[in-house]
Design a protein around this nucleic acid. Structure first.
Lengths: 183, 183
DNA sequence: TGTTGCATGTAAGACGTTACATGATTTG
DNA sequence: CAAATCATGTAACGTCTTACATGCAACA
């Protein structure tokens, strides 16, 4: 469901074609809800069918290869407003790294898992740096309007998450090295 | 892929029937890789076909309704050991709460999102308390073997994650209240 | 004997990923 | 005009969720 409303929100911020949306998801929206262009086109079709978005601009150019700009309808905005307050439990977290560590605990295969942790640490460190650059670029001055404050809040969620992961990975490496030495 | 190896690991720790596995996933393994009984039975079938697990106990009782205990084969253990070191990037995080906050920023619908944040805060607080209870129960004494240390490490990943979420939710509520007052 | 609980399954649909297909526009 | 790029799609597959179906055992 969230993808649907992520798209409506993004289109509400500004009308776009499918590919422009895809790029927005690669560049910003996708940091908290990733989506490929295939998912986006499929969802756009369904949103058009439901009347929540509509085609803007010259409708006399159908067919493949032609950019099709879409925008949100009144009904789309109404459904978005309703969705915001709907019941929403946190989705279960899945950590393949935790599975690997339990597997290592059960088999004694400690070397492989250490490599895996190191790769995760590198990835999280890179993501953290990306988020910090965005923060410097977009949220450096302290005079933000409500919309800016909320965007910053979302970014801080990513920052906190990456920092928590990095701290834990460092912890994990320390433990794994200690266990390996004392074997 | 991870579910497959989560099941092998759990069966390596101890043989089980499908339902026993399901309960283990509800009670411990599922904190970092949730799975329903449908997923588990499907994967068990596939693991049997692949020869990575095999039926233990009386094979003369086939059919429905009868418990079927399975255990890991030599080949299963080998494939688990191989998997531990395989390339594994962190899977993209998805946050429906972040989508809601961006939607609130775009529509001005701040009341609904505040409720959503409060519910997430309550859920994360409850999960944190569960993890703390497990920590008190299973990891209170400081004399753990390697396996115990690794299990504790996995638990600490959950603890760190929940704590990060709770801190952020409190932050978010503060901001949302401030924005509401200054409207 | 009917209800409850245990145990194993089937089916359908939503969501995600990967690979590929097709048309239009730009530019070397 | 060939190649690259932009843009919109299709298809197949795998995973996850939700709802339902079937059989056995205990027991009131």
């Amino acid at each position: 469901m969230s993808l649907r409303f992520a798209i409506i929100t993004s289109l509400l911020e500004r009308e776009a074609t499918g590919l422009e949306l895809t790029r927005r998801f690669d560049r910003s929206f996708g940091y908290f809800w990733p989506a490929s262009h295939q998912q986006i086109y499929r969802e756009l079709r369904s949103l058009l069918d439901a009347g929540l978005i509509e085609e803007k601009g010259d409708p006399a150019r159908p067919g493949r290869g032609q950019p099709r700009v879409v925008g949100v309808t009144e009904e789309g905005v109404a459904s978005l407003r309703r969705w915001i307050g709907e019941l929403d439990e946190p989705r279960p977290e899945r950590s393949s790294l935790a599975v690997r560590i339990r597997a290592a605990a059960a088999t004694g295969e400690l070397g492989g898992v250490e490599d895996a942790v190191r790769r995760h640490l590198a990835a999280h460190t890179a993501t953290l740096e990306t988020y910090r650059e965005i923060e410097r670029r977009d949220f450096a001055d302290r005079l933000l309007d409500a919309e800016g404050e909320l965007h910053h809040l979302v970014l801080r969620s990513g920052l906190a998450n990456e920092q928590a992961w990095i701290g834990w990975c460092e912890d994990a490496l320390e433990l794994l090295q200690r266990l390996r030495r004392s074997e």
